[in-house]
């Protein structure tokens, strides 16, 4: 028997970062593509379609984390698929215990609610941290541009949510009351002098007051991300809890890197464990203290551990 018959030559470097996922059928795999923030130039989309048509069986799948997945790909075609996608600069994503491709909403460029440039953040994190081995389990990052939070940021290991802190310059206020009408959180009420009063404890940093104000009397005093850590979904979901506020966009990568370093160290020897469960075991103060050293202006004074979400509600015990 010749060597050619015994083994198929596959460039194993292609498989190193994952992204090739075994399917039910013999020899068939899903190839998960790297689409940070779910935004895809049309030229790349066309190339993906071309490759899918040539090597797949007529379908692609859109993953819940904004990726295009080529399905029903024969493993013998891996090298050809990777090479041809590469002509359109499309890369393969990852799976396993690594930093995954970040998700993001449309952000502030065209979405009227967006407060920060989530697309830019997603691209930056993808460039600097994608594929980093955690040593323990998967590590997901997501960006929401505002508190509507379409990407469900708190279900990520580190979730970012756009935020502004409003401040009123009374001289420019014409007392129209639109901010009071717009604020659904009860953080603004009209005073007896016909000018708005800010009730800071009710504010969730959505910026609706700034957006509606006719005279720009409401302005952003601080802008950045609300950061929640320790979320996940799956069989035992956790909702991430608050660790930092108004983190500047430029510090996102450094912040995630600090969380990753803590996770790598604290989960040592524990096997396949997610960040949220490590925080629950260590206590959130340990992570808060570690982050405070590097980000003192943004880390909150106190928080609670990631919270378990009951998914078996209604089931009789």
């Amino acid at each position: 028997m010749s060597d050619e018959k015994k083994s198929t030559a596959i460039d194993l470097k292609n498989l190193k970062a994952g992204g090739f996922i075994k399917e039910r059928g013999k020899d068939l795999f899903t190839v998960r593509l790297r689409v940070p923030g779910g935004r895809l130039p049309v030229a790349r989309l066309k190339k993906i379609a071309e490759v899918a048509e040539k090597y797949g069986q007529g379908m692609v799948h859109l993953s819940v984390r904004q990726s295009v997945e080529l399905i029903n790909i024969n493993f013998k075609d891996f090298d050809a698929v990777v090479a041809q996608l590469g002509e359109g600069t499309q890369k393969v994503a990852s799976c396993g215990a690594r930093v995954r491709v970040p998700t993001a909403c449309g952000g502030c460029e065209y979405n009227p609610n967006g407060l920060v440039d989530t697309q830019k953040s997603a691209l930056e994190v993808d460039e600097k941290l994608f594929g980093t081995p955690t040593g323990h389990h998967k590590f997901k990052v997501g960006f929401a541009g505002c508190p509507f939070d379409c990407p469900k940021s708190a279900t990520n290991d580190v979730g970012f949510q756009g935020a502004v802190w409003p401040v009123l310059s009374v001289e420019e206020c014409i007392g129209c009351g639109l901010c009071d009408k717009s604020c659904t959180e009860g953080a603004i009420t009209m005073g007896e002098d016909g000018k708005p009063r800010f009730i800071p404890e009710n504010c969730i940093y959505c910026g609706d007051c700034l957006k509606v104000c006719p005279t720009e009397a409401w302005r952003a005093e601080k802008k950045g991300y609300t950061v929640r850590i320790g979320g996940k979904w799956g069989r035992r979901p956790l909702v991430g809890t608050l660790f930092a506020e108004f983190l500047p966009e430029e510090q996102v990568v450094a912040f995630i890197a600090a969380v990753l370093a803590w996770y790598k160290e604290k989960a040592e020897g524990q096997g396949r464990v997610r960040l949220g469960d490590v925080i629950r075991a260590e206590g959130p103060e340990a992570l808060l203290a570690c982050l405070r050293e590097q980000f003192p202006a943004f880390v909150v004074d106190a928080t609670i551990p990631p919270q378990a979400i009951a998914t078996q509600v209604g089931k009789e015990r």
């Binding site: 009227p112 014409i174 129209c176 009351g177 639109l178 009408k181 717009s182 659904t184 609706d208 957006k211 509606v212 006719p214």
Partner: peptide
């Protein structure tokens, strides 16, 4: 309507002058 329409009109470049109940 009162929450969204004024804001959308502002972003189209019109000048909001006031709101009366």
């Amino acid at each position: 309507p009162v929450k969204n329409v004024p804001r959308s009109l502002k972003s189209e470049g019109h000048k909001l002058l006031g709101l009366k109940e």
